[in-house]
Design a protein around this nucleic acid. Structure first.
Lengths: 241, 241
DNA sequence: CCAGAAATCGATCGATCGTTCGATAGAATA
DNA sequence: TATTCTATCGAACGATCGATCGATTTCTGG
């Protein structure tokens, strides 16, 4: 009996942005109205979608710097000049993608269902599982954000660093509540929240490895949940039943 | 009473290569005799050291692609043409660094002290602690290898992937021995070896974060060790001491 | 069907890239 | 000291980059 909240359920609560590439593109279009000079949404969204899908694909192969705008124009089926109707510089293109991902994480993880938020164990499981499902649904976006965040100029790098710090704080708060309510051990390592993040990143950074081994998202999620709960729960969590 | 084998002790067993940038440069020089056309070691080693230190520093800031050979020439105090006495192309420079790191990990982790290898718990702790100390001593090399491995062409990317697979196998073998000898739980997750690696990478990938928080390598190592042992040891590991 | 707007095109620019190579300086040899 | 070899230099080359902009196509309202 695994707690695996469906992403679809969550969308009903926040219907403004779907967790799809198209949804993100609509959000990007709204956020960058001033730089994107294509006015009709019906045209701009599918075009932007094609551009960003190609850009993420190319970047995730050889790095963002290595992707030339000629490569992007070829892959997206749009001329090099035409691309500039959707961004004013290559740097802006990078910022658009990264910013959208970090915003999304905070929007989704910040609003757990009320019933789940009441129970620290369920909440902790939900945070892990939801984060994994989120990255799975938007895999290219997250691999891009992870790999390219380090190459940002200092000013913009803060976006990624702050986002990660905020995610870690969500874990820290839940664990603290669990300790105070007596469910978690009082000697739980204060470093545990920081150690959860790399376990979640592992899933999308090394995605091909787990695909090759035939390991499903569900079983990976369950393993990480047990791994983490073993480190803080008073009663040891047995393996999958 | 923490098991923290000093790197210095290990060097005595494998005195051929010291765990310093200079030691790695000597190894690189020996391996690439044919492409490096500077014959006198007394000159080649310190020059190569300056070049690689600068290259790793620049790459780790903005990415390897973004580092131009003019940047590198300025930082290393050598002319752009002079650099080509130490590598025949920028790609070779990248391969030299990566290959050296992956080789080093296998050389060091593959030879645990006999006394430690006998006990699965001590061996597992030793693998974690030694890996962390190794990455700490050669931080720029590992951040470079981690960040740039993904941007390799498929053929050379295998070097990094295989190296990681081998490291994971070291963990898997120790854990399996622990299970068979009755020290580890029989229901230990088969995915545990894969989950250890990201916890070790976290240390050098997010190094500034832990420096900012004043978290020492020793305490990080102890936390990870306990975290992992909690997931496989029969008797729950209490907090530090 | 046609005028005007919206969207796209692709040749082109200057800058910068990795790389080459003849000249030069320094050390070793005799 | 003269000579040979080693190591380094930095100007220069062709290729490619991000970005521009006037021409062209496509769409839309009347």
């Amino acid at each position: 009996m695994q707690i695996t909240p469906q992403i679809a359920d969550m969308v009903e609560e926040t219907p403004v942005f779907e967790l799809t590439t198209e949804g993100l593109c609509r959000s990007i279009l709204a956020r960058h109205q001033d730089t994107i000079c294509v006015r009709k949404t019906a045209i701009a969204v599918p075009r932007l979608k094609r551009i960003l899908e190609s850009a993420l694909d190319l970047s995730n192969r050889g790095g963002f710097q290595a992707m030339s705008l000629r490569d992007l124009s070829r892959a997206s089926g749009m001329s090099t000049g035409g691309l500039y109707a959707y961004f004013d510089s290559k740097t802006t293109l990078r910022k658009m993608s990264l910013q959208e991902v970090t915003d999304l994480v905070q929007r989704v993880l910040g609003k757990p269902p009320a019933a789940i938020a009441a129970d620290p164990v369920a909440h902790l499981r939900w945070l892990i599982d939801t984060h994994l499902h989120l990255t799975e649904a938007l895999l290219p976006w997250f691999t891009f954000a992870f790999m390219e965040a380090k190459n940002f100029p200092p000013a913009e790098r803060r976006i990624a660093v702050d986002s990660e710090a905020l995610t870690e704080r969500l874990f820290a708060e839940v664990i603290e509540r669990g300790v105070m309510s007596g469910v978690f051990r009082t000697d739980t390592s204060p470093m545990l929240p920081a150690l959860i993040k790399p376990l979640l990143q592992e899933w999308y950074v090394k995605r091909p490895k787990y695909r090759r081994r035939g390991i499903s998202l569900v079983s990976y999620s369950a393993t990480v949940q047990d791994f983490v709960l073993n480190a803080c729960l008073k009663d040891t969590v047995s393996g999958r039943e």
